[in-house]
Amino acid sequence: MSPQQKTDYDEVIVIQRAKKNDRIAQGQLYEHYVDAVYRYMLYRTGDPTVAEDLTAEVFAQMLVSLARYEERGLPFGAWLFRIAKARLVDYWRATKRRERQAVALSAEAETFWVSDDSPVDIQEYQDLLKAMEYLTEAEREVILLRFASALNNQEIAKVVHRNPDAVKSMMYRALRKLRDILVQREKFYDTDTKGCHTTI
């Protein structure tokens, strides 16, 4: 599965052309994956500017290393997200930030993206990211790769160096946890709102 399904996009052919330094094919690969990579970076760092820089680094690395890429059981998306993960680790190391640190989505993120369906409610994303703080690092990783970057289980397994079945069960556990967290939170806010009404 690829991040964005397009009818005229044949990844194998595009990669072959891109490896021969075809600028148009390289641009097609970029267009195909840039949103997925950017969202992954944004939800992990919370800062749209940093996410943009890291995304640029990932594609710079892609352009440099593309000639050496061979499929050999590693899908291109998984290969690209391995680069993304490595760049993210470099960023955390350089800024001496901890991976577990809570991510607060910056309000500037609205100016960077557009949504196809409806106006972006940044608060909704904020709530989801807040709930994900209760997940383990590995669980958060697979949830974001799945839902923010639209990778399938096989690709996620290649990125996180795990068995696809292990990824599947981990994701199941993470979803149950998230469901409980979100339900508890809604209950809490409902009670709080009712309490406010009664006092007013």
Binding site: T55, V114, F147
Partner: peptide, 24 residues
């Protein structure tokens, strides 16, 4: 709810800027 995490897309300006940075 989580599917919404995958909805936002980069604006054309940001997309072009990132590509230029990557190429540089």
């Amino acid at each position: 709810r989580l599917e919404k995490l995958g909805q936002p897309c980069l604006s054309a300006t940001a997309r072009r800027r990132i590509w230029q940075k990557a190429y540089a």
